[in-house]
Measured scan of single mutants.
Amino acid sequence: MQNSHSGVNQLGGVFVNGRPLPDSTRQKIVELAHSGARPCDISRILQVSNGCVSKILGRYYETGSIRPRAIGGSKPRVATPEVVSKIAQYKRECPSIFAWEIRDRLLSEGVCTNDNIPSVSSINRVLRNLASEKQQMGADGMYDKLRMLNGQTGSWGTRPGWYPGTSVPGQPTQDGCQQQEGGGENTNSISSNGEDSDEAQMRLQLKRKLQRNRTSFTQEQIEALEKEFERTHYPDVFARERLAAKIDLPEARIQVWFSNRRAKWRREEKLRNQRRQASNTPSHIPISSSFSTSVYQPIPQPTTPVSSFTSGSMLGRTDTALTNTYSALPPMPSFTMANNLPMQPPVPSQTSSYSCMLPTSPSVNGRSYDTYTPPHMQTHMNSQPMGTSGTTSTGLISPGVSVPVQVPGSEPDMSQYWPRLQ
């Protein structure tokens, strides 16, 4: 039975679970980093996980050691009161100082060594604690504590007292930064006198190289990059290397530039699409467009005044059976039934097929058609009795279509119309 579990990581490298990497692998990681390889490249070359490479390099940059820390136990506290007071002093002298600059000053002034120097995250935590204590304490208590930490007896009751030896409130920041720059020169002199001055200088240079600022491109470089971006948004590694040799930039910087440029292009394309949609959409909808001609068919113009009344309900007709019959029939052209047409008796099958359309009241044959006459024609229609054979009435077949029909004066039988409509 094995005491430890061995495995293979996602890159194909072998590791022992819970145990640190061998010293030979750690040394190779540092050597590759000094030669300029990126952590992701080191991870692929040595088949070590990216997190492990970053952790080893980060500890090497901070402490200069590649040895693993002790497994188990607690780390001794490195942010001692003396170190905290120095950090507060540096922050007062130059409020814009960075944590890694404070760390360098602690090393250069001999406050800490490589073994007990606090990390950048520890210094940031100390600065946050100082800021929170400043908010919790009152103004007087804060000034007393700062005077105690600074070891001075001057008056701290006013704002300019934060910067000793100065009279203009805006000047101390520059003086403090100048003092810090002077301390940086002392850093070089002190570290050069040490035993491991060369190694420390190499480590600091490598650290500065990794902690780079934003790349500033010249106009020629920007023009070359934009020209390549117009050709393709995704250049391959050969195109990037050719462009890197042409404009004297690292291939990694060119790759990052193209990634950022593609993101910018997507944002601009989104804005262009929004403007295009806004320009195509009308600002207001016309009133006429809300009524579609496919839904509402136009009603033909009436030929006679009587045809303006298109349904039985508008003429005072309360018989719903006839109203439904007229509205359900398709529109037909106007025609006239003459008196000489043969009077065919209704076929029983045809009569039964339209039995649902006729009223059940037996008085329908005896009703006159003056009910369908509009009010303004009552006088004219009353002067001509319906009993004469020459009287013409208008029957409504569908809305908007008038059918003048000659009705025999002897017997106005409704059943004569249905064979004609089939």
Rank of each mutant, 00 (worst) to 15 (best):
R38S: 04
R38I: 02
N129T: 15
T25L: 06
D144G: 09
Q136V: 11
Q27M: 15
W100F: 07
S119M: 05
K75M: 05
D104S: 10
V78I: 06
N9E: 04
E82Q: 11
Q136K: 11
V126D: 01
K91C: 00
I29K: 02
A99T: 08
I71V: 14
N129V: 09
D115F: 11
I42Q: 03
D140V: 14
E31I: 05
E93Y: 09
L46Y: 01
M142S: 12
Q27H: 12
N116P: 06
P118V: 04
S74Q: 04
I42R: 00
V126F: 00
L106M: 07
H5V: 11
G36K: 04
S96K: 13
A99G: 14
E133W: 09
P118R: 00
G64D: 02
K75R: 09
N3Q: 12
G72S: 04
V78W: 02
K134L: 09
P22M: 05
D23V: 13
G138P: 10
A37N: 11
C40L: 05
I42E: 00
L106V: 04
G36S: 05
S74A: 06
R103S: 06
S35G: 11
N124A: 06
L57M: 07
P22D: 04
R128F: 05
G138S: 11
Q136T: 14
H5N: 11
S121A: 05
S54C: 10
S96E: 13
K134V: 11
R19N: 04
R59W: 05
I71S: 14
A70L: 07
V120M: 12
A33P: 03
C94H: 12
K75C: 04
V16D: 06
T113E: 15
P20R: 01
E133I: 10
P22S: 05
Q10S: 11
G7L: 10
V48A: 02
S96T: 14
C94E: 12
S54T: 09
M137I: 11
A131C: 12
R103C: 06
V30S: 03
R67P: 04
I123S: 01
R59G: 00
K91T: 02
K28N: 08
S6W: 15
L32Q: 03
K86M: 10
T25M: 07
E101K: 13
N3Y: 08
S49Q: 03
R59A: 04
S122H: 00
G110H: 11
R69T: 05
S4V: 11
R92E: 13
V8Q: 06
V120Q: 05
P81F: 06
I29G: 03
E31M: 13
A88L: 09
R19A: 03
P81K: 10
P118N: 00
Q27Y: 12
S24F: 11
K145P: 11
I45E: 08
V8I: 09
R59N: 05
D144L: 10
N114K: 13
R77N: 00
R44C: 05
G12N: 05
S4A: 13
R105I: 08
R19D: 03
P76Q: 01
V111S: 10
A131Y: 08
V126N: 06
P39H: 09
I117K: 15
L21E: 01
Q89G: 10
G58L: 10
T63H: 04
Q27A: 13
S132I: 11
K28Q: 10
G51V: 00
D115W: 08
H5T: 10
L57T: 02
V78C: 06
P76K: 08
G110C: 12
Q27G: 11
R67S: 09
V8M: 10
K55L: 03
V48L: 04
A99P: 04
D23E: 11
P20H: 02
D23H: 10
I117G: 09
K86I: 07
R44V: 06
C40V: 09
A70F: 07
G7F: 07
M142H: 15
Y61R: 15
S65Y: 01
V126C: 09
V126A: 11
E62I: 06
A131W: 07
P76I: 06
I29V: 04
R38M: 01
R44G: 06
S65T: 08
K86G: 08
C52T: 10
A139Q: 15
S49F: 01
P118L: 07
I117M: 09
I87L: 08
S121N: 00
E31G: 11
R103Q: 08
F15N: 02
E101G: 08
E109C: 11
M137D: 11
C94Q: 12
C94Y: 12
A79F: 02
D144F: 08
S43W: 02
W100V: 07
I87M: 07
E82K: 13
L57A: 02
G138I: 13
G7W: 09
E82M: 13
R147Y: 09
Q89H: 10
T113R: 14
V30F: 02
I71T: 13
R26L: 01
R38V: 01
N124M: 07
R125V: 05
V120K: 15
C52Y: 00
G64Q: 03
W100Y: 08
P81Y: 07
D140W: 09
K134T: 10
N50G: 06
V111A: 09
P20K: 00
T25P: 01
S54K: 02
S65A: 05
S74G: 07
D140S: 12
L107V: 10
G72F: 03
R69G: 06
R38A: 05
Y90V: 14
R59E: 03
C112R: 07
D23L: 13
S108R: 12
S49I: 00
S119W: 06
C94N: 14
V53L: 05
I117V: 15
G18H: 01
V8S: 04
R92T: 15
R105P: 02
S54D: 01
G110M: 08
S49G: 00
L130K: 15
D41C: 04
L146H: 14
V53N: 02
K28R: 10
I42N: 01
G73W: 01
T63G: 01
Q89W: 09
R147S: 12
P39T: 08
H5G: 13
T113C: 13
P39G: 14
K75A: 06
Q2M: 12
G110E: 10
D144Q: 12
